[in-house]
Each structure stands twice: as C-alpha cells, then as structure tokens.
Amino acid sequence: MEFNKIKYIERKTGEIKIEKVPGEKYLKFLYYNPLGELPLNLVVKKKFLTDYYGKQMDKKESTKKIPSFIKEADINIEEAKKTIDQFTSFNDFFYRELKDGARSIDFDENVLTSPADGKILVFENLEKEKELFIKGDKFTLKEFFQDSELAKKYEGGVFLIVRLAPIDYHRFHFPCDGKIGASKLINGDYFSVSTHAIKKNFRIFCENKREFSILQTKNFGDIAMFEVGATMVGGIKQSYTPDSFVKKGEEKGYFYFGGSTCILVFEKDKIKIDKDLIENTKNGIETKVYMGEKIGVAFN
C-alpha cells in the first residue's frame, strides 16, 4: 500500500487538512517498509518500551519538552487550566485539564456527543463494510470484546472510532447520561493507532491493550465504551466511579503520553450517526470533532 500523508476534514469549516504527525518518518518505516516489520514486532509493540518512555515523561526534567511541543503542534494552551510553568512533567501537560467552557456540549437528551477531541471513522455495520479501512482484514466483534455473548449483543450495530493524535486534548468523557459499569481490562500489544497503521492492519484494535465498560442509557441502549492503548501510551486512567449515574460531558478518564483511541459500539437500531461522518468514512477520510460536539441522534 502506498504511503500518503494523513488528510482529514475539519468539520467546523469543511476544510481538508494535513495532519501533523510526530515521528511520521518512523511510522512510514515500521508500517510501510518490509525492513520495519522486525523492530515493530520485536520491540515497538512491546509493553516494556511503552512503560519505559511513559516513566521518562513523568520526570520533572521532561517539562523541557513542553514549549517546543506546543509550538510545533500549534496547541492552544490558553484553553488549559494550568499555565506552562505550572506543569510538573510532560505527562502532566499531556493529560491537562481544560478550563470550564473550553468545549461546548450539546445537552439535548436525544443527541449523542463525541467523547473526546479526535478524528472520527464510523461503520454502520462492520460485517457489511468493504471500505478502505477494513478491506481484507479479519476483524470480529467476538475477538474485539473477548466475549461471545457481548459480540452477539452488538452484532449489526454501529462501530465508531475517535482517534486521538498526540497533539489532542487527552481526556475522554461520557457521550450521554447513563449508568456506567466497572471497567474491564483486555491485555494486548502496543501497536500505533495512527491512520498509517490501521490502514495496514485494522486488526490492531483486536490486538492492542484496551479497557471497556458498558454505559446503560435511556435513549441509546447499552453503549460499550472502549479505550485503546497504543505505542508510547503509558497508561489509561479511569477517573469515574463504577456503578454510578453519570451525566453527559462528565470526565470518564484520560490517557498518559501518546496517541490513543476511544471506540463506541452500539446495539443495532439504537443510534443514527450524522450523515457527514458516515459519508466521509466511505470516502476514506476522517473527520475532526471535539468533545461535546453532536455526532448522532437516538434511533426513533
């Protein structure tokens, strides 16, 4: 497969943009060069490398990386609660909290909102999809959930991916009101979840470490909320209280350093995703959305 720069649609403006990808030349080597397969499988996908780098990002001296990262990624640091000199490590900056009101949340009870800032791909039914991102890959819900009963429950439903790039805000939130269950860990590898990687192997979502919990809702059925780890993601922190009632927009947790992914899986006939997100996916391009932004409505 030919290597191309990652293009996406900025939903607010309709503009097609090129993503700034830290370490893109290494991703090109690992996923598009036959010589990259050996280090990818022997080292890069392994937990020890991600753990090591995550610990480096917890050290005080890692704060030196913050100013250049902000400049290169063009991050609006004015949205953050802390100023640059208040961060205690790069990780502290990476999973920074935003000021109240930094994101607008659509509180209509029939509206589903994005759980995070990121770029969306959405598949209305994985079993029938033959589009760019999953063509030729043997991806099954049974393998993804590691649970045959849950796989059957969500058969024929919507599979929605929100990919967080390293430059994005890295806290994730609840997309609607509901009762949230405990988080279940599924151990796995640490492949990159960059578009460069998933175009080559959609099965990464079955192979990477991930956690999921079920959000029981009034209007959208039981939503399976997944958080997927990736190369250099030092960890996934769940900050919510299990078996509690949560409100739309409340924080669920956050990712430590690295790119990562939130995935929402819906039961059949419970959600109608906005048409532009579906059409963009069919055209092989992601759509940039922000936490709290409308991405669908309840199926009536």
Score class of each variant (00 low, 15 high):
294 K>W: 08
18 I>W: 10
292 G>P: 02
44 V>K: 03
82 K>R: 06
20 K>N: 12
96 R>C: 03
296 G>F: 01
176 C>T: 14
172 F>Q: 00
83 T>R: 15
205 F>E: 03
243 D>N: 15
255 F>K: 00
207 E>F: 03
30 L>P: 01
31 Y>L: 03
44 V>R: 01
297 V>S: 12
250 E>C: 07
23 G>D: 05
92 D>R: 02
176 C>K: 01
183 S>K: 14
275 K>Q: 15
176 C>W: 02
177 D>W: 06
51 D>T: 12
190 Y>E: 02
52 Y>Q: 11
278 I>S: 06
254 Y>L: 06
152 K>F: 07
259 G>K: 03
106 D>G: 04
111 V>E: 07
220 F>E: 00
185 L>V: 13
152 K>W: 05
196 H>L: 12
171 R>K: 08
17 K>E: 11
191 F>Q: 05
175 P>W: 02
36 G>F: 05
158 V>Y: 05
18 I>Q: 11
89 S>G: 03
110 N>D: 13
267 E>D: 07
215 L>K: 02
7 K>T: 10
229 G>C: 06
184 K>E: 10
211 E>C: 13
243 D>H: 12
80 A>P: 07
268 K>D: 06
46 K>E: 12
119 K>G: 00
240 Y>K: 03
136 G>H: 12
211 E>L: 14
82 K>H: 04
214 I>C: 06
178 G>K: 02
250 E>A: 10
144 F>R: 02
174 F>Y: 07
